[in-house]
Amino acid sequence: QNEKLANELKSLLDELNVNELATGSLNTYYKRTIKISGQKAMYALKSKDFKKMSEAKYQLQKIYNEIDEA
């Protein structure tokens, strides 16, 4: 289960640069939040902690959705 979550989180991290570029014309909230979420996700992957990875995955998905809707 950890392996599956780690792969999903890696996949979301692969999209980080594209989504970060998409924040160029948006409010600074999005820029700041996506950077923080990305850092948390990288830390969670290194720690291999299921709870941290779950939270990081949720945060990344949430900010990606917010950027898409903005």
Rank of each mutant, 00 (worst) to 15 (best):
K31A: 10
L12V: 01
E20Y: 14
Y64T: 04
L45C: 02
L12H: 00
L12E: 01
F50D: 04
K62T: 05
N7F: 12
K48F: 07
K4P: 04
S37M: 15
I36D: 06
K52V: 06
K10I: 08
K35A: 09
S47I: 09
L26M: 08
Q61I: 13
E69C: 10
A22V: 09
L5K: 01
T23P: 04
A6P: 02
S37R: 08
G38P: 00
E69A: 14
Y29S: 04
L16I: 06
G24I: 13
Y30E: 03
E3N: 08
Y30R: 03
Q61R: 05
S47R: 04
K31M: 07
E20S: 10
N7T: 11
E69P: 04
K31V: 07
N27T: 10
I67Y: 03
A56G: 02
S37A: 15
A56V: 03
K62Y: 04
E8S: 05
L45N: 01
N65W: 12
K46E: 13
T28N: 13
L12C: 03
T23Q: 06
Y29I: 04
D49V: 03
E55M: 07
L9I: 06
N27P: 14
A22G: 05
M42D: 04
Q59A: 10
S11Q: 12
I34Y: 02
K40T: 05
K57P: 00
D49H: 03
E3K: 07
T28Y: 13
Y58S: 10
D49I: 04
A22I: 12
Y58F: 11
K31R: 08
Q61V: 07
A6G: 03
Q59M: 13
M42S: 04
N27I: 05
S47N: 06
E20W: 15
L21I: 10
K52H: 05
L45F: 06
L16Q: 02
Y29K: 05
N27L: 06
A41Y: 02
L21A: 10
K48S: 05
D68R: 15
T28Q: 12
L21H: 08
T28L: 11
I36R: 08
K35M: 11
Y29A: 04
E8H: 03
N27M: 06
Y43W: 12
N17V: 13
K62W: 06
E8I: 05
Y29G: 03
K46S: 07
T28H: 13
R32G: 03
E69F: 11
L21Q: 09
L21E: 08
N17A: 14
I36V: 07
S25C: 14
Y43S: 13
T28C: 15
S54Y: 11
A44C: 02
I34N: 00
K40M: 13
L26C: 08
G38K: 14
L16H: 03
Y29V: 04
A56D: 00
L45Q: 02
L12T: 00
M53G: 00
K31C: 09
K57H: 05
K51I: 10
Q59F: 14
Y30M: 07
A44R: 00
L5I: 07
K51N: 10
N2I: 15
K46D: 08
D14A: 12
K40N: 10
T33V: 13
E3S: 07
L5A: 03
A6H: 06
M42R: 12
I67L: 06
Y58N: 10
Y30H: 04
L9D: 00
M42K: 12
Q39D: 08
Y58T: 10
L45S: 01
A70L: 09
E20C: 14
K31N: 05
Y64Q: 06
Y58V: 10
L26V: 03
Q39W: 10
L45P: 00
I34K: 01
N65P: 01
I36K: 08
Q59Y: 13
K35V: 08
K46P: 01
A22H: 09
E20N: 09
S25G: 09
Y29T: 03
K52L: 15
Y29H: 06
L21P: 03
N65A: 13
R32Q: 12
G24S: 13
L60N: 00
E55P: 00
A44T: 00
K40Q: 09
K40A: 08
I67W: 03
T23W: 10
K31P: 03
A6M: 12
I34M: 04
S37Q: 14
L13K: 00
N17Y: 14
E3Q: 08
L5R: 01
A56W: 03
A56F: 02
A6V: 09
Y30V: 04
M42Q: 09
S47Q: 06
K48L: 12
S47G: 04
K48M: 14
L45D: 01
S11N: 10
K57Y: 14
N7L: 12
S54W: 12
E8Y: 05
E55T: 06
T23R: 06
Y64P: 00
D68L: 15
I63K: 01
E66A: 07
N2H: 11
N19V: 14
Y30I: 06
Y43K: 12
L60Y: 01
M42T: 05
K46A: 12
N7Y: 12
T33Y: 11
A44K: 01
K52M: 12
A70S: 06
E20K: 12
K46H: 11
A22C: 11
N17D: 11
L21T: 06
K40C: 10
A44D: 01
E20M: 15
Q61D: 03
T23Y: 06
R32A: 06
E8Q: 07
I67Q: 02
K4L: 09
K48I: 02
L45W: 07
N65K: 14
L13M: 05
S54P: 02
L16S: 01
K48T: 04
I67V: 04
N2A: 13
D49E: 04
K52C: 10
D68P: 04
L5P: 00
I63M: 03
N27W: 04
Y58A: 13
D14F: 08
L26R: 03
G38M: 15
N19R: 15
K10Q: 12
L12S: 01
F50L: 06
L21V: 10
A22Q: 09
V18A: 13
E69I: 13
E3I: 09
Q39F: 09
M53W: 01
N27G: 13
I36N: 05
L16K: 02
K48G: 14
A44N: 00
E20P: 05
A44S: 03
D68V: 14
D49L: 03
E55Q: 08
K57N: 03
K35H: 07
K52F: 05
V18W: 13
A44H: 01
E3G: 05
L12M: 05
Q1H: 10
S54H: 08
Y43T: 12
Y58W: 09
K46W: 09
N2W: 15
Y29D: 04
S54R: 11
A6R: 09
T28F: 13
M42N: 06
E20Q: 11
I67C: 02
M53R: 00
S25R: 11
Q1R: 11
I63P: 00
Q39Y: 09
R32P: 02
E69H: 13
K10A: 08
N19S: 06
S47V: 10
R32W: 12
N17H: 14
T28P: 14
K31Y: 09
K46G: 05
N7K: 12
K46I: 12
L26A: 03
Y30S: 03
A22P: 05
I36W: 11
A41N: 01
D14R: 12
K51G: 08
V18H: 12
D49Q: 03
A6L: 07
L12Y: 02
K31I: 08
K4D: 09
E3A: 08
Y64H: 04
